[in-house]
Design a binder for these strands. Structure first.
Lengths: 208, 208
DNA sequence: AGACTAAACGGACTACGGTCCGGTTTGTAT
DNA sequence: ATACAAACCGGACCGTAGTCCGTTTAGTCT
């Protein structure tokens, strides 16, 4: 046991950023585990930051230092799923990944995103419920850049703006309203999005 | 003075809803005036409900009984502008009002809405910042029904869903992010929306 | 005028997100 | 081992939206 501690676990050389202190790491693990438990037990919307601090046996300040705010916490809980989603649309197989024509990639992107929202529901909504900089969060910027690129490839004017429009369409709050409050099935929303994207990029409306 | 009170001011017959009590009316006026003053002085986002209650010399409970929540208050402040907007797209002259083809009415609707958001800014955003039932608020339902009708006229499949997509595009928070944080000019957003709507309804992209 | 009731009032109270800062712990240099 | 600085910790504290309930008041009926 003590031998292990003699071997540098993360030998990142001398220039690396000062690695995380052990107590900080321990608290982060505690917090993440407590957060997952609480979410599983009581649902995302019922979890408060005080509750989390208490369950993790940690001060409230520690929670906020770690995650910034409530949305940051939820984002962290989603980070694995989010990373996987990003991998898929950047490096994965077509039609979501590179190789397919822009229209199809666009359709696949919306479809994947709608499934993501359907799957992670409240969590996805809470992760984007940041008071100020929702749209400036790294994932949102990445999605935006991706759509912008696809639209530029497709020869659309003002791809930046069009990407914004399309992204607003995939806002978790809106999608969840349709799914949960209005009882619309996910398949219908996905089909609608495909038609939306198809029409936008000038595909014959009837074409599959 | 006492003679006036003998004459029924609102002779709505016996079946009308019990009219508002005089103290309630007085407090409502006080609250609205105070709210307008505070918004003018300090900006929408800096106005708190306590502040408003204090300025209007009224209890906090009265504020919430009247408006339900913060969003309701802001909605009330916007009600004149909102009513006028509704009149325009329901009864007004084309292309916003009836008489023009659906595509053009759609373009005009988005354009008008973007101008509205640009004009009322923070207020429009705050009015839609209701914790739960944003999309079920009467104005949002009306906009949705209107777009749905236009899309149905235009022969779109699933007009309900398409109307939802289009409305999400006009979300005040998103539009204001582009306008204020990204420095996009209103004209560019309006032009983008026209192109968006045009492509969606199958108009030749280049057509004015 | 006096009594009565339903509506309205007001402000103390709660819940929650987020901040602040004095005290503690960790890793390191000597 | 000891000293030290930086990073970290915890929980008291704050501001705000929204609720609750005992008290007051406007309008009505006799």
């Amino acid at each position: 046991m003590f031998l292990v501690s003699l071997i540098p676990i993360r030998p990142e050389g001398s220039s690396g950023p000062p690695s995380e202190r052990s107590d900080a790491a321990r608290n982060r693990e505690r917090l993440l585990q407590a957060a997952r438990e609480l979410v599983a037990e009581r649902g995302v919307d019922a979890v408060t930051m005080d509750m989390l601090a208490c369950r993790a046996e940690v001060g409230k300040g520690t929670v906020f230092r770690r995650f910034g705010n409530r949305a940051g916490l939820m984002m962290t809980l989603l980070s694995d799923a989010e990373a996987e989603f990003q991998q898929r649309f950047i490096f994965g197989p077509p039609p979501l990944g590179p190789g397919a024509p822009p229209v199809e990639r666009l359709m696949a992107f919306g479809e994947a995103r709608i499934r993501y929202i359907d799957k992670y529901g409240e969590l996805a909504r809470a992760a984007e419920h940041s008071p100020h900089n929702r749209h400036a969060a790294p994932p949102a910027l990445l999605w935006h850049r991706h759509l912008e690129m696809l639209l530029r490839e497709a020869g659309v004017d003002d791809p930046w703006l069009m990407a914004s429009f399309l992204l607003s369409t995939l806002d978790p709050e809106r999608v969840l309203y349709a799914l949960r409050s209005q009882g619309v099935e996910a398949a219908r929303i996905e089909a609608g999005w495909r038609e939306f994207a198809g029409r936008l990029l000038g595909c014959p409306p009837g074409a599959k």
